[in-house]
Computed example of a mutant assay.
Amino acid sequence: MSSYDILEIGDPQAWTDPDGGPVAKRFIDKEIPTQYIGASANALEPGGEVPFWHSHDVLEEVYVFLAGRGQMAVGDDVVEVQAGSVVRVGPGVLRAWRALPDSPGALRWLCIRAGGDTLEAIGRDGQLDRERSMPWAE
């Protein structure tokens, strides 16, 4: 592994889901050789939400919101997020998010994750909960 690598992921305004799903997601760590840090670039159009909750056994994640307005469910809490919000979520905590229907544009964020070992040693560390209902009160 070299001492640095460069990857162009494009203008956040152009992030879209090539399959037409609700979440545009790009796993940066699959495209650039990282060893200890995982990252993804994400976007949800206004009114969109992720289709499941998830948690990690070992990894903690930091969400850096870049544009739009939304809500993030963290455990039993719902927090408002917008450009400039940063949310850290520790291991074992369920999380989900949505873009508010009246968001001025897509909710866009970077997710940065790391744990106590290399990503390769940790392997796939996520669990999905498709049965838990979303907490959004309309």
Rank of each mutant, 00 (worst) to 15 (best):
S3F: 01
S3V: 09
D5W: 05
I6Q: 10
L7S: 09
L7I: 07
I9M: 10
I9E: 04
I9L: 14
I9V: 15
Q13M: 10
D17V: 00
D17W: 00
P18G: 08
G20F: 00
G20N: 05
G20Q: 08
V23L: 13
K25S: 10
K25D: 09
K25T: 15
R26D: 07
F27C: 05
I28Q: 04
I28K: 04
E31Y: 00
Q35G: 05
Q35L: 08
Q35I: 12
I37F: 11
I37E: 10
A39G: 15
S40K: 06
A41H: 04
N42T: 06
A43H: 05
L44N: 01
L44K: 04
E45H: 03
E45T: 09
E45C: 00
E45A: 13
G48S: 14
G48T: 01
E49N: 05
E49V: 00
P51E: 08
F52R: 11
F52Y: 13
W53Q: 07
H54W: 06
H54K: 11
D57I: 00
D57S: 13
D57A: 14
E60M: 08
E60L: 08
V62T: 15
V62R: 06
V62L: 15
Y63S: 04
V64C: 10
L66G: 07
L66N: 07
A67V: 05
G68M: 01
R69C: 01
G70E: 03
M72P: 01
A73T: 11
V74F: 02
V74Q: 07
G75L: 10
G75F: 02
D77V: 00
V79K: 15
V79A: 08
E80H: 07
V81E: 08
A83V: 03
G84R: 07
G84D: 10
V86M: 15
V87P: 02
R88P: 12
R88V: 11
R88Q: 13
V89G: 08
V89P: 05
G90W: 03
L94K: 14
L94V: 08
R95N: 08
A96G: 11
A96V: 04
A96N: 14
R98D: 05
A99F: 00
D102C: 02
S103W: 02
P104K: 03
P104N: 06
P104H: 03
G105Q: 04
R108V: 13
R108T: 12
R108D: 03
W109K: 03
L110C: 08
D117Q: 14
D117R: 13
T118D: 12
E120N: 07
A121T: 15
G123I: 04
G123Q: 13
